[in-house]
């Protein structure tokens, strides 16, 4: 009786076995890449807003500090979205006729909120706290990018857990002097050396326990 398998079958069987492993790994890799890519995370996508508010203009060109509007960022978990009155601190006097700002004026007249679209939307089981990050020298730009270049606001971070942990495992890559936290264009000369010095000086001890962020 003739042999069922020819000698070349050895080669084919190896191809099939290793090819299948590669294919499974490849699908996983592609899935991972898509999952963490801006396609899935929504990073780098400007969202439509009721008023096309420009951080580039207010923060970059006029030099208004982040905290002028985001007043609670140093004391609370939530940075704070300003009430309409904060817009009106200036816009009751300048650009008072601008059609672009009509929703702001309407909000002040009627008492109805401006309904902004959230740009950084963490899952509800994550409890991020702005104040501790500010206190330990994490600059706004480390997560939000350089908003002084953004006409409409977009996010630059994937906001995945792996991304959070990258920094919690190696804070020296991002910790900056406290007085530079709100300067979104600041870049260290030698981040590694400075970061390691500041991590010890500021007693930066980021936790990696599940319950640090999830509860």
């Amino acid at each position: 009786m003739a042999q069922v398998f020819k000698p070349s079958s050895n080669t084919y069987s190896k191809l099939v076995i290793f090819g299948a492993l590669l294919a499974v790994g490849g699908v996983g890799l592609v899935g991972y890449l898509i999952n963490t890519s801006p396609f899935n995370t929504g990073a780098y996508m400007a969202h439509a807003q009721p008023v096309p508010f420009s951080h580039k203009h207010h923060n970059g060109e006029l030099g208004i500090d982040c905290r002028y509007c985001h007043t609670s960022v140093e004391e609370s978990a939530f940075a704070g979205i300003p009430p309409t009155q904060t817009c009106m601190n200036c816009h009751s006097q300048i650009w008072t006729e601008a059609p672009m700002l009509e929703p702001v004026r309407a909000s002040l007249r009627t008492g109805q909120s401006l309904e902004w679209t959230r740009v950084h939307d963490l899952p509800d089981f994550v409890y991020f706290n702005h104040s501790i990050h500010i206190a330990k020298g994490i600059g706004c730009a480390s997560c939000h990018g350089d908003v002084t270049r953004m006409n409409l606001t977009w996010s630059v971070a994937p906001l995945t857990m792996g991304w959070c942990l990258d920094c919690h495992r190696d804070p020296a890559a991002n910790v900056r002097p406290r007085e530079m936290v709100f300067d979104t264009t600041w870049v260290a000369q030698d981040q590694r050396a400075l970061g390691e010095k500041l991590v010890s000086e500021y007693h930066v001890q980021p936790r990696q326990d599940c319950s640090t962020c999830h509860r």
């Binding site: 009430p83 909120s113 401006l114 309904e115 939307d121």
Partner: peptide, 15 residues
């Protein structure tokens, strides 16, 4: 005081 509110992304029709 008139507070702002934030809607979740995706709750508004987008391109």
């Amino acid at each position: 005081m008139n507070l702002s509110s934030c809607r979740r992304p995706g709750t508004q029709p987008q391109a």
